[in-house]
Write a protein that binds this DNA or RNA. Sequence first.
DNA 1: CCATATCGTTTATCCATTGAATAAAGCGAG
DNA 2: CTCGCTTTATTCAATGGATAAACGATATGG
Lengths: 394, 394
Amino acid sequence: MQTTGNQYLVKKINKSIVFDTIRRKNPISRAQISESTNLNKGTVSSLVKELIDDDLVYEIGPGQSSGGRRPVMLLFNHVSGYAIGIDLGVNYILTVLTDLEGNSVEEERTPLQNLSFDSVISALFQSIRAMIDRAPDSPRGIVGIGIGVPGIVDEKGTVLFAPNLGWKNVNLSRMITDEFHLPVIVHNEANAGAKGEHLFGSGKGRENLVYVSVGIGIGTSMIINNALYGGASGFSGEMGHFIIESHGKKCRCGNRGCWELYASERAFLEQAKSLSVPSTDSADLDLDRFIQAANEGNSEVIQLFNQIGEYLGIGLTNIVNTLNPELIIIGNRFAKAEKWIRNPIHRVVESRSLPYHRQPLKIAFSSLGTHSCALGASSFAISNFFSDMKVPVG
Amino acid sequence: MQTTGNQYLVKKINKSIVFDTIRRKNPISRAQISESTNLNKGTVSSLVKELIDDDLVYEIGPGQSSGGRRPVMLLFNHVSGYAIGIDLGVNYILTVLTDLEGNSVEEERTPLQNLSFDSVISALFQSIRAMIDRAPDSPRGIVGIGIGVPGIVDEKGTVLFAPNLGWKNVNLSRMITDEFHLPVIVHNEANAGAKGEHLFGSGKGRENLVYVSVGIGIGTSMIINNALYGGASGFSGEMGHFIIESHGKKCRCGNRGCWELYASERAFLEQAKSLSVPSTDSADLDLDRFIQAANEGNSEVIQLFNQIGEYLGIGLTNIVNTLNPELIIIGNRFAKAEKWIRNPIHRVVESRSLPYHRQPLKIAFSSLGTHSCALGASSFAISNFFSDMKVPVG
DNA sequence: CCATATCGTTTATCCATTGAATAAAGCGAG
DNA sequence: CTCGCTTTATTCAATGGATAAACGATATGG
């Protein structure tokens, strides 16, 4: 059933406009809000009053006069509640607690030894519990939980297929809601990372971007007109399974010549095995070890990074030619190798992309490091909270 | 500046809901509209009165009683105006005149001998003029012109780049508005074709689909949640320049191994040259000639169709794995070869796509033949007209 | 100190939706 | 044929939110 127009809808729209204006232009006076939104001064006053009653906004005191009565400045009350953001990795869980502006106030990284379903879920619950316990007191408490998962997720928060976790049809959203009685938003890991970089990282202020998450596999996600394209699962899923060599190697997906066979962390590590690089005890740190070796001048390793970078460039060219993005952000673990893959990527994309597209493109690396996903996930919980909140139920 | 909520917005929303309901459920009574939209009966009455004054709706007379007063049935007045839709091909112009439901009432195909810019424009103007002259009398006359162009188009209707026409930065929209003083919508040819198939063809009733236009080159476009994804230019542009062989043939785009080098009409014709098939006088009918040869059992030609079909399948697999569509429609000229390419396409996609995706996918061929683009273009003009119309200016 | 400008609130007015009442039209049982 | 019941469509007062204008409070600057 569609939503019909009536006065409540009008109020909801305007309250939301006023609130968003305060969040964005913070600190701001009622008069300035009226000016910038074209809403009547009286309307703004009454809506601000409600937002103050809702604990979402507060008055900070008089501001600078511009030749008349001094304005009362308003601030977004970003600590009126907190959100939890989770990056559910293949062998780790990164949990953050953020305020309603997305600033991280607590965080915890849990390495996963035991990858069985039950123990992953139990570790997940434990880390959520820890964040809830550590959250500061606030009028609204924890407003929601956002999770980024390396797999395909539907609108209802069911993980349909996450090969690297070995999950299939896991109704993650419900499991967590049942336990914690909080709103839960589950998204694909690349979607969360894209949103994180868009709000807080290299993509800040951009309206459109493509985020390429290069980890064990390759995931992708797009922000179009400031919104995530394509829902929770979206189209992101599996751009790693682009064919780039139609008669190439066999992939576990059943196809041949998939991009991630040539350009992912796994592709790198498989070829790197045979190189003579001192091993460390920790199996996790494989990639770091090779980056260090490259930094120390190991030419074989540098050469391998170069090769992987070139293949990354080939897949990126597909994205450039197809989607014509203004910005591509490379994130997730392999972004750590920026120094060694940056040049080959640029070289290949420069030489292969359509001349018409080459102009506006920028290729950047994640500036949030490994936090993009968790911060993006928390932002999903926050926007979900606001979109509920803005409805004047009472 | 954002649109704020006020009573005019409410009315615009509701009027639009009522009108859409009438268009979709035609014939329908006021009571049924109230029932299905949850709008108050009084509200519906007053909005219907306005729509009747606007010539958009009319009363057809009493309907079947269901045990009480007989309802007055309302009809969408689909001949209160007409729209022009144009498929601007590389060597032809197909123009249709449709009523406001998109039914074609007049059409004209103009072959282009002289491909110079001026003569193409002049032929275009002439065909528009012809449609205007042939349009039946109606309260609103011609409500707009929609054009599908084989190239990249921006929001303002400027053709940024159309290699096959040899156009660059042509403000087509303005040129036509200046001449005819009518609203003009210019879109990419694949977008128009996708919309055409979505409204009237193989994609009727679907919410999501990918349209692949296989002509000289390859264009693609997506409908997501009943809306065209990505605007006038959108992402459609150049999926034909997917890399499918990273060390393959050189493409005129500067890259190597692009999909359309292996799977387009041009790819077919280049290889078909060397086959021994009787030539006809008309150079245009090349493809038809080979289809006929295949139908007559020429095994070399059949083999070539088979090969092109397989490469089409490889690119389609990329689309399947990446976008996970429920429906792919293959359109434009090469769709005529359905009989010969259908099997290889299915075979390749079946064997190469991710098992998870394979389930819901259907691959169909255009059911509007070569009319998808022109009909879709006309539908753009119609929706543009309605979106203006629904604002209660008076 | 006064003229002027700005800020925020208050008041009266406007307007679209709503629900209820009413009018109009039809069906069917006795 | 009549009466009672339904359904359809219109009318009307009430509701609630936006708006414009007036107003009080507060600041600046000469």
